[in-house]
Design a protein around this nucleic acid. Structure first.
Lengths: 350, 350
DNA sequence: GTTAGCACTCAATTCTACCGAGTGCCAGCG
DNA sequence: CGCTGGCACTCGGTAGAATTGAGTGCTAAC
């Protein structure tokens, strides 16, 4: 596991003097736009500071010495470092979505309905369409949800299904295959006992299982142990990744594309990545900040989604470090806000 | 929608004379291996026909005239056309898996357990690891499965969950949100009625719903209509795609990678693609054969999975037309056979 | 029917020269 | 003292020319 850099956004930025800040900003903006190193004359022309390119140059060497800019090679322009992007992002005035996108979001949330999973999945598609970056939508696990109902259904001979409904609306099933064939009556009885036993508990609660030796008790024991065998923290979590084809668009270099795709395949890793960033109180992790080497070329924007104030997941956007932060952050924030509102208002509507 | 070419494997191959067949085979094998046009001298050296390169050349012009080979430009070697690959595949002696892979499959199926979905998902990872191609695993929908149990659970105020268990072991949930708040007693009563009404039916059955105007009847009506609103054919189907990062490895050209990834994102399309190929009785679709233009550069290998003789899904491998057919087909077949066996034997084991 | 020989083709590679964007430095200026 | 115009220098990228070499098609001879 790579080293993790813990930092808060504010502690990082010892505030450059106004002119340096303007120059840095100009370089970042221009480089995001052109994907090319930015020269002093371009900066002198674009930013509204009335100085010559020579002055810009001398400021640039300072910025480079302080670690905000880098030079791919002598006699090329400058490109921002991760630290440079960080400064840029920390001093970014929050942007607004384009009107087209606003409309798209509005229509989407007006029309979306159905189960939570479906909504999250469609949201991930929406986000990636809004921004043309790959989106990551994480739905929180049901570690703290309580059991509303547990039911044992016989499929065939020794194969039963334990179907558990949680207070957060999630439904999970587990196979229960004891070493004996139970009668329908025994299954029904076990089902009743399971209901009595499990309702109101969470996956973390310990449950007193009957120690008797009859079939019902055996079924109940097996069902409970199967249910609790699942990892409470990670297992219930859902990840929806939208627009993975965008990876091939926004990153250059087949190898980078491959690496990023490989990361996205490991959903657990993606979840913990997003979680880490949220835990650090960040909304953007740039390059080395998230500590995963294969994602050095990436920036990850996250925005939490809450239900009744409690964290219920997050939406994220994955792009190159030179991504369009303002637009992407706006999109993530708007979508997470809409999602939060959608879930809060879900009961009151149809 | 692009034109679909329907053909059976045997009808396509008017059997080339022995020497041409050998030459074609040599070109295909060599090109799969080297990814480069194959010259006459290479063929003369490799294949065990004792002729000179000049003879091979004159045969090659014939093969080109008949559409089995193509020349990227004059003074380059030959590469196989889709038709050439088709001939090659149709005359392929079925290969065997490498011992490492055999071991891997054995260990996997010895150790795998859990719900069908989990098994399928892990299988897709396995397949892609075995072959370093992207895998597609399709689980059949439950159009013909009968309802084993239906239960209505109240989440909060007007938000209920209809949880339906099918005979194929699948569990689906649907939100039921009537315009009134029902009492716990009403919900329980509705749940009972739903059970009585739905058990034994399929999603395609029409069900007689009560026409009464009380809360129970309204709940039942809403629940049944919600359940039947789902598309029986497509909705229950599951797709698991493994190793999408392999796309970036085996295809060259960012644009191709992007297109293939974009296709893979549309899961419904992938399902119907696999289904189409199976319906044609093929096990491999090469280039234009599957009729999707963005996949012109692809070949797709499929192998059906059955439960008790009935189709229960399929496993597939997606690679470039110059993929390693023998190994990949062997992998797909072995895995599909193991999967079939796994599901057949699921009841008898733990 | 097969083959050795040969002229020809053409993508890929290498080399060279050159261009120009951009830099660092410095002397002069307000 | 900070800014600026000027200038020499660097170095990646490009364009063109020359070269290479794998591979072909053709033909005459076996």
């Amino acid at each position: 596991m790579a080293r993790r850099v813990v930092r808060t956004p504010t502690a990082t930025a010892p505030d450059l003097d106004a002119r340096k800040a303007l120059i840095l900003e100009a370089v970042v903006i221009e480089h995001i736009d052109s994907a090319q190193p930015v020269g002093s004359s371009a900066v002198a022309a674009s930013a509204d500071l009335d100085v010559s390119s020579a002055t810009v140059r001398s400021e640039m060497v300072a910025l480079e010495r302080e670690g905000y800019l880098a030079q791919p090679h002598t006699s090329a322009g400058r490109i921002p470092t991760d630290k440079g992007y960080r400064y840029f992002v920390d001093h970014l005035k929050s942007g607004v979505l384009g009107t087209v996108q606003q409309q798209q979001v509005k229509e989407f949330f007006a029309g979306v309905r159905g189960e939570v999973e479906d909504v999250l999945e469609q949201t991930s598609t929406l986000l990636s369409q809004l921004t043309s970056y790959t989106s990551v939508v994480v739905g929180a696990g049901h570690a703290h949800a309580t059991v509303l109902s547990a039911q044992l259904v016989n499929l065939e001979s020794r194969h039963h299904l334990l179907v558990t409904v949680f207070s957060d609306g999630s439904v999970v099933k587990h196979s229960v295959t004891p070493s004996f064939v139970a009668t329908p009556k025994e299954v029904m009885e076990a089902s009743k006992q399971l209901n009595a036993l499990l309702i109101g508990t969470t996956l973390e609660s310990r449950v007193q299982v009957p120690a008797r030796h009859d079939h019902e008790a055996a079924l109940v024991r097996e069902a409970v142990s199967t249910l609790h065998a699942q990892q409470p923290v990670t297992d219930g979590e859902q990840v929806f990744i939208g627009g993975s084809s965008k990876v091939a668009e926004v990153f250059d270099g087949v190898e980078t594309v491959r690496q990023v795709l490989a990361i996205l395949e490991q959903e657990l890793l993606v979840v913990s990545l997003v979680q880490d960033i949220l835990d650090q109180g960040l909304s953007v992790a740039i390059g080395s900040e998230h500590g995963y080497e294969p994602l050095l070329a990436c920036a990850l924007i996250v925005a939490p989604v809450t239900i009744d104030g409690a964290p219920a997941g997050a939406v994220g956007l994955l792009g190159p470090t030179r991504m369009k932060y303002r637009e992407a952050m706006a999109a993530a924030e708007v979508v997470s806000a809409n999602l939060t509102r959608h879930f809060a208002g879900a009961d009151d509507r149809g």
